[in-house]
Simulated scan of single mutants.
Amino acid sequence: MRLRHPGGSTVHLAYCTNVHPAEDLPGIHRQLSGPAARVRALTGAARLGLGLWLSHGVTRALRSDPAELVRLRAALDRLGLEVVTLNGFPYQGFHQEVVKYRVYQPDWAHEDRLRYTLDLAEILTGLLPDDVTEGTISTLPLAWRTGWTRDKAAAVAANLDALARGLRELAGRTGKTVRVGFEPEPGCIVETTSQAAALLGGADPEYLGVCLDACHLAVGFEDPRDAVALGLPIVKFQASCAIEAPPGAQRALTAYDEPRFLHQTRCAAGAAGYVDDLGAALAGGLPAEQPWRSHFHMPLHAAPPPPLATTASHLGELLRLLMAAPLTRHIEVETYTWSVLPGRADVAEGIAAELNWTRRRLAALGLEEI
């Protein structure tokens, strides 16, 4: 979906397709003609934006056969879908039975991560609509925090320099700019927006910046005003909600302790009030007298059964602040957890409801759909 900001710029709203399992090109085409087309019909959108997730295997297939990229772009056009942003965080295997810490591999110390991201950028220039010259890619926040050494930091710095050079060369060759946003996440080297400013402040601001994920910021109990004033380009914003439990009611989170994804959990007690996964918190890793927030992406439009809640109000405040200028023009609804939510849900209906929730809030901020 496209919306016009009161200042005249175009803001793109999409949903992230990492919610749909697919690790090959036939699977991607089934996504487009199946759930994505259904979401478009349910929203009534003239053009539905997709934050496409392409695994490493899919990127290799598209790069090795240019005809496949042309076919993919044609399928998007035929179905009324468009892509201006890619999710480049998961490398592969995002819907395996157990993902957990694997999602951070390979990290930015590895050549494979650099090559994958540059391949995504090349692909994105071929998928951008004809009237769009700027695309974005979100990626992991450098690395998981353990095993960080001086040598690893040096390798990451070298790869970020190579990434910026590659993106600059791509822009010169194609006339299309692709920017990459590093996504602060609890437990990682870049965990907070202040760490992002410290560790990424020397990166090329023309091509590298941050992707702010509302769920991650909420789990970190970050003030939205501080988060948007970090001094780095906000390449992309992921509209997402964390789950929250009030003091003394944390056992209600048991239904969300599932084995596939990592659910970093924090309380408001400071640095000591953090564990890597919800199961560790429920086993006594966090004090019960503090509210907890867990990295479990929840539907934007619907609250869980009481006493649990989501951080939708935190998301709403971030949207308000980001759209004031606007500070970013790419918004991606990213609730990848539909398959592990307690109870049964129609994923396409849920995603459509999330997009409608978001477009209503953007309309309330003065944006008009075009």
Rank of each mutant, 00 (worst) to 15 (best):
E134G: 10
G181C: 01
P141T: 11
L282G: 09
G202M: 06
E23F: 04
V275C: 11
P186Q: 03
E206S: 14
T177F: 01
E332L: 07
S9K: 09
D65N: 13
A272M: 08
A67S: 15
W108C: 02
A364N: 09
P305C: 07
A271P: 09
M323V: 10
A158L: 10
T43A: 10
G270Y: 08
L278Y: 04
G270M: 08
D161F: 01
T311H: 09
C267Y: 03
Q195I: 01
E68D: 11
T136C: 14
L54M: 03
G285T: 12
V132C: 14
G175S: 11
Y256A: 08
L230D: 01
M1Y: 05
R320A: 14
D226C: 11
V219P: 03
R251A: 14
A272I: 05
E349Y: 02
E183K: 00
E354F: 03
D24Y: 04
L278S: 07
A143W: 01
V219R: 03
A303H: 12
A196T: 05
R71W: 02
T43I: 08
L118I: 02
D346Y: 04
G8Q: 10
P326L: 10
G201F: 09
L25F: 13
P246T: 13
W338H: 13
E244I: 06
G175L: 07
A198K: 14
P186G: 11
D131V: 11
L163P: 00
A22P: 08
G80Y: 04
T85M: 03
L48A: 08
E368A: 14
D257N: 15
L128S: 05
L42F: 07
A252K: 04
T17K: 02
R150Q: 15
L217Q: 14
A353V: 06
E354C: 13
T265L: 08
P90S: 08
A325R: 15
R113G: 00
G57V: 00
L167N: 00
A198C: 11
R359E: 14
W148C: 12
N87L: 03
V84F: 06
L200H: 02
C211D: 05
A325I: 02
G7F: 06
E191Q: 13
E244V: 15
R266Q: 15
A158Q: 12
D107A: 00
T337C: 14
A312F: 03
R173L: 12
N18T: 09
G175R: 07
P342N: 06
Q105G: 08
D276N: 14
A239G: 12
Y101A: 15
R293T: 10
D204R: 09
P90L: 03
L318I: 11
L367S: 04
F182H: 01
A14S: 15
A364G: 12
A324G: 10
P184D: 01
G88H: 00
A197P: 04
S194W: 07
L365C: 05
A245H: 04
R38T: 15
V39N: 09
F94R: 01
R150A: 15
H314E: 13
R38W: 09
G135E: 07
Q92P: 00
F296G: 04
A37P: 11
G172V: 07
A164Q: 05
E97C: 06
S9P: 06
Q195L: 13
